[in-house]
Lab assay of single mutants.
Amino acid sequence: PEEVRRLVEELYRKGVSPEQVKKILKKQGIDEREIEKVLRRIG
């Protein structure tokens, strides 16, 4: 979803590592598979 992409990109631009991005967003209840999809697209 758009909102997940925005959150991931925001953290990524701040220099947060992909592993940390995953941890942070998982705590917020976001599906890990969604996060990984976005990270793959960015990375």
Rank of each mutant, 00 (worst) to 15 (best):
P1E: 14
P1K: 10
P1R: 10
P1C: 03
P1Y: 14
P1H: 12
E2P: 07
E2N: 11
E2M: 08
E2T: 10
E2Q: 10
E2K: 11
E2H: 08
E3C: 07
E3Y: 08
E3W: 10
E3P: 07
E3T: 07
E3G: 07
V4H: 02
V4R: 02
V4N: 02
V4I: 13
V4E: 01
V4Q: 02
V4C: 05
V4Y: 04
R5E: 15
R5L: 13
R5P: 04
R5N: 14
R5G: 12
R5W: 14
R5H: 14
R6Y: 07
R6Q: 09
R6H: 07
R6V: 12
R6F: 08
R6D: 05
R6N: 06
R6A: 10
L7S: 03
L7H: 05
L7Y: 06
L7G: 01
V8R: 00
V8P: 00
V8K: 00
V8F: 02
V8E: 00
V8S: 01
V8D: 00
E9D: 05
E9M: 14
E9A: 06
E9T: 10
E9Y: 14
E9W: 14
E10G: 09
E10R: 08
E10N: 07
E10H: 10
E10P: 01
E10F: 11
L11C: 01
L11V: 02
L11F: 05
L11N: 01
L11T: 01
Y12E: 03
Y12I: 14
Y12R: 13
R13Y: 15
R13M: 09
R13N: 11
R13A: 08
R13P: 01
R13T: 07
R13E: 06
R13Q: 06
K14I: 10
K14Y: 07
K14D: 07
K14E: 09
K14L: 10
K14Q: 10
K14H: 08
G15R: 05
G15F: 04
G15P: 01
G15M: 04
G15S: 04
G15D: 03
G15L: 04
V16N: 07
V16E: 05
V16M: 10
V16P: 01
V16I: 11
S17K: 13
S17I: 07
S17D: 05
S17N: 08
S17Q: 08
P18Q: 08
P18E: 13
P18I: 09
P18S: 12
P18D: 09
P18T: 12
P18Y: 04
E19W: 14
E19T: 14
E19N: 13
E19M: 12
E19H: 13
Q20S: 09
Q20R: 10
Q20G: 09
Q20N: 11
V21C: 06
V21I: 15
V21H: 00
V21R: 00
V21S: 02
V21K: 00
V21Y: 01
K22Y: 13
K22N: 03
K22D: 01
K22F: 12
K22R: 13
K22E: 04
K22G: 04
K22A: 07
K22T: 10
K22L: 13
K23N: 10
K23F: 10
K23R: 12
K23E: 10
K23G: 08
K23T: 11
K23S: 13
K23V: 11
K23M: 12
I24N: 03
I24P: 00
I24G: 02
I24D: 06
I24H: 06
I24R: 07
I24Y: 06
I24A: 06
I24F: 05
L25V: 02
L25K: 00
L25S: 00
K26P: 01
K26M: 14
K26Y: 07
K26V: 14
K26S: 12
K26F: 06
K27H: 10
K27L: 11
K27S: 10
K27Q: 11
K27W: 06
K27N: 12
Q28D: 06
Q28H: 07
Q28C: 06
Q28I: 12
G29A: 03
G29E: 03
G29D: 04
G29Q: 04
G29W: 02
I30Q: 03
I30P: 00
D31L: 05
D31I: 04
D31F: 02
D31W: 03
D31N: 07
D31V: 03
E32F: 02
E32A: 06
E32G: 06
E32Y: 03
E32I: 06
E32V: 06
E32K: 05
R33S: 11
R33A: 13
R33Q: 11
R33K: 12
R33F: 06
R33W: 07
R33H: 11
E34Y: 05
E34A: 05
E34F: 05
E34G: 02
E34T: 13
E34V: 13
E34C: 03
I35Q: 00
I35P: 00
I35S: 01
I35N: 00
I35T: 04
E36M: 04
E36T: 04
E36W: 03
E36N: 05
E36Y: 02
E36S: 04
E36A: 04
K37I: 12
K37A: 14
K37D: 15
K37L: 09
V38Q: 11
V38C: 06
V38T: 04
V38S: 02
L39C: 03
L39M: 05
L39A: 01
L39K: 00
L39Q: 03
L39H: 01
L39D: 01
L39P: 00
R40W: 12
R40G: 13
R40H: 15
R40E: 15
R40V: 15
R40F: 14
R40C: 01
R40T: 14
R41T: 15
R41E: 15
R41C: 08
R41D: 15
R41F: 15
R41A: 15
R41S: 15
I42W: 12
I42S: 03
I42G: 06
I42V: 11
I42T: 04
I42K: 03
I42P: 15
G43L: 15
G43N: 14
G43W: 13
G43C: 14
G43A: 15
G43P: 15
